[in-house]
Nucleic acid binder design. Structure first.
Lengths: 129, 129
DNA sequence: ACAAACCTACGAATATTTTCGTAAATAAAA
DNA sequence: TTTTATTTACGAAAATATTCGTAGGTTTGT
């Protein structure tokens, strides 16, 4: 069994920023975070330190301002979160999750088109709709 | 804005049982729960009482053993959880979630077929571009 | 050199979630 | 009736997650 990645909501926010920006200092992460929520600087610092202890983040201590990097891939993390949702919320049915994600205008028509193409690749439609 | 349904993991387990079995007593829920985890009876009771306070559950007190029912629909709850995942994990892209859910053999070929049919039936509302 | 700004580490307060022991009431069994 | 089992209510412990103040060190600006 591969290790379970289970970031909390706050941790996920930080991972998102690091996946987006790449290696960053606490200050850099905090400045992005501030735009959407209000938390003190040391709160962000503490969170990232904890994430480092959990090995969710790597860090480079050679400079005064430590530089943190995500130590789990976005793909793999997304995969585990989706799998968990399929199991816990959709009783193991991936298709039910997909349909829920496609309903209610959650996806634009452009996105729907993307998905159609993707589907044809992994499961070509013999009739060619 | 509609009320936010945000069940915890434990609460979701209970909701799943109630959605599946319909109105049930604490004992009935607990017996199902026991099969997959080990927790004491009063733990289940307390959880369901809290869920009732939060109005996640309704209850009928006319008998000695109270009968609980889910007070949120499975559809709506699933929808909100999926939307939250799209926002927090996939930066708002439903298609990315879908592709993640379809990759890595998370869906059987039968499921893929279901999804393909579902997609053909969708009449996309052109709001995104 | 001195002060101001910045950074980390640490500990602890808060908040939330999960767990369960115990007491009181009711029902069932003996 | 007396005992045993079942159920609720309550409170609080335990576990986890989030927040922040403060101290001490380093760098930067004057």
């Amino acid at each position: 069994m591969t290790e379970q990645i289970k970031p909390t909501d706050s941790e996920l926010e930080i991972l998102n920023i690091l996946w987006d920006k790449g290696p960053s200092t606490v200050r850099e992460v905090h400045e992005v975070l501030e735009q959407s929520k209000d938390a003190g600087y040391t709160t962000t610092l503490k969170l990232m330190q904890i994430m480092h202890e959990k090995t969710l983040l790597k860090r480079d201590v050679s400079n005064k301002s430590h530089v943190y990097t995500a130590n789990v891939s976005q793909e793999k993390t997304q995969g585990q979160l989706v799998k968990r949702m399929i199991d816990n919320v959709f009783n193991g049915s991936a298709s039910q999750l997909v349909m829920q994600a496609l309903g209610n205008n959650k996806a634009s028509s452009q996105e729907l088109e993307e998905i159609r193409k993707y589907l044809e690749n992994i499961h070509p439609n013999p009739k060619g709709s």
